[in-house]
Design a binder for these strands. Structure first.
Length: 214
DNA sequence: ATCCCGAGGG
DNA sequence: CCCTCTGGAT
């Protein structure tokens, strides 16, 4: 685990991320808050490319919780059985859709407490919805952000909650809104788990991590 | 700590 | 073969 970088080092790093990609966006495909929520639930331990492959035909037919209940659990499984953990995910998506219809008039609530009370929705998924659908500066710490944060020193912590706090406490405020996607994209394409592409890294000179990639 | 669990990459 | 992918519930 690297040492936590200071405010000025983080300002330099995020300035580069912003200059390279001023408006970073989720690579998950969705058409409204509800389909975003479903896509994020499906994305657990799965690649977004794999999730998009499944949701493209699904969201062509289903864009509301009521339509999802019509489709049903077995119908949903036909669309998502190529995604890992599909049985748990199908059960959770149907159950949360029923709650949205019965308790929220078919809308997606915009509070963390209400989101996390939904089956299959934990802190990370709730934070993604708050950030992407509602524009709040919520920091969803996933596998990429946890790895990149600790490897580079951008956000150091022993668990995801500690890394979330490290981002909130250390990243200059003006960068917090987009920090989530900058870190995800950096982790996905450059600072990869297995074979990081350090020679192609924007912040190589500011990073303590050394990886011999031949 | 363990289970869920398919696809893609190396 | 093994590891990884925008985790959550028990």
């Amino acid at each position: 685990m690297a040492q936590q970088l200071d405010y000025h080092q983080l300002r330099a790093i995020f300035t580069r991320f912003r200059d390279a990609n001023p408006e970073p966006r989720s690579e998950l495909e969705y058409v409204n808050a509800y389909t975003l929520l479903v896509a994020v639930v499906l994305s657990a331990q799965a690649t977004d490319a794999g999730v998009n492959r499944a949701t493209r035909p699904l969201f062509a037919r289903v864009t509301t919780p009521a339509q999802m209940l019509e489709l049903g659990e077995e119908g949903l499984i036909e669309y998502i059985k190529t995604i890992g953990l599909f049985r748990n995910k199908a059960k959770n998506v149907i159950a949360l859709s029923r709650i949205l219809v019965e308790q929220y008039g078919g809308e997606v609530p915009d509070s963390r407490a209400a989101l996390q009370a939904l089956p299959g929705v934990g802190r990370k998924t709730a934070n993604v919805v708050l950030n992407v659908a509602f524009g709040y500066p919520a920091q969803a710490v996933d596998t990429h952000i946890f790895r990149v944060g600790n490897r580079t020193g951008i956000a150091v912590g022993k668990d995801v909650l500690a890394v979330e706090r490290a981002i909130e406490d250390n990243v200059p405020v003006e960068f917090q809104r987009h920090a989530h996607h900058w870190l995800i994209l950096h982790g996905r394409y450059i600072c990869k788990a297995r074979k990081p592409r350090c020679p192609d890294c924007l912040i190589r000179d500011l990073c303590p991590y050394e990886e011999k990639t031949e």
